[in-house]
């Protein structure tokens, strides 16, 4: 067993429940390496998840963890960060958990620019409940609730996050594992609301219905469709059709929520009048 797994996982809980070839384990490994790279104190780092296959992650990680209700990871995380601003707070959420039932919490956490890192495990489907479409299921994609092909347009998570006010936004894939880990590390380091969309694959609930082949074939698709933001800058728009950008997509420094909140507390406890 490698050192990262020994140090950051509850080893007595392994093997995990995820299906063979599921991308969840790859994203979670990248997250653990990011934490290791930054040398974060395990006792000062909390990881919070919602409900879904991806959200089971918190059961395997050896940090203070909270496995919350479906879509609500960011609400618990917001409470924790406000009460204990010195903690590193990381949220793990699925595409369904984050942008369907939890969509409202997501946009408002972004708007507040609270210093939480959200890693979205995007496998384009509700994996845990057997393959219903999520807000990230592609148009024409098959799911148990769109058996004739999906007629809706998916969200673009980075665009959504940026529009809502997130101040660090990146996208990576399970194929580009090392880069994914760097993006997560940068997101954790960033002060403010940071989002990393990790494009992943669910060979069982999504891949089978869409005839995408085995786990390596699905990862090859991620590789083929990805284009780094730096490479994309030099390409004409027609070369970008059907591709998605990966890398650091947005970064801005703006006042952070818990710091602004602390200013109010300081002002009032010093006996001052708020202007």
């Amino acid at each position: 067993m490698n050192e990262i797994i020994k140090k950051y996982f509850r080893n007595n809980k392994l093997p995990h429940i995820w299906c063979p070839g599921c991308g969840n384990g790859i994203v979670l490994g990248a997250l653990a390496r990011a934490v290791d790279k930054l040398g974060l104190d395990q006792n000062k780092t909390a990881v919070i998840s919602g409900i879904g296959c991806s959200s089971r992650s918190t059961g395997y990680l050896d940090f203070d963890t909270i496995h919350t209700a479906h879509g609500r990871a960011l609400t618990f995380a917001t409470g924790l960060k406000l009460a204990r601003p010195e903690l590193n707070v990381i949220v793990i959420t699925g595409d369904g958990d984050c942008t369907a039932i939890g969509g409202n919490h997501f946009i408002h956490a972004a708007r507040r620019n609270i210093d939480i890192t959200t890693v979205i495990f995007n496998n384009n489907i509700y994996g845990m409940t057997g393959g219903q479409y999520s807000p990230l299921t592609p148009t024409k994609g098959k799911s148990t609730t769109s058996p004739y092909g999906h007629i809706e347009k998916p969200f673009d998570i980075p665009e959504l996050a940026i529009a809502a006010g997130a101040t660090y936004v990146a996208r990576g894939t399970t194929y580009h594992t090392m880069e994914l880990s760097k993006l997560i590390a940068n997101a954790i380091e960033h002060k403010g609301f940071s989002v990393v969309e990790a494009l992943s694959s669910c060979p069982i609930s999504f891949g089978r219905q869409n005839k995408l082949g085995n786990a390596p074939s699905m990862m090859k698709l991620l590789k083929e469709k990805a284009i780094s933001i730096k490479a994309a800058e030099k390409l004409p728009p027609e070369k970008l059709a059907g591709k998605y950008l990966i890398g650091e997509l947005f970064r801005k420094q703006l006042p952070e929520y818990t710091e602004e909140y602390q200013k109010i507390i300081n002002n009032l406890t010093e006996g001052g009048q708020m202007q």
Binding site: M1, N2, I5, F9, L14, P15, H16, W18, P20, G21, C22, G23, N24, G25, I26, G29, A30, R33, T174, Y175, T177, M178, A215, M219
Partner: peptide
């Protein structure tokens, strides 16, 4: 090792 979803590999 980086891509094994099951943490089964050590290099």
């Amino acid at each position: 090792e980086l891509r094994c979803p099951d943490y089964a590999i050590t290099v």
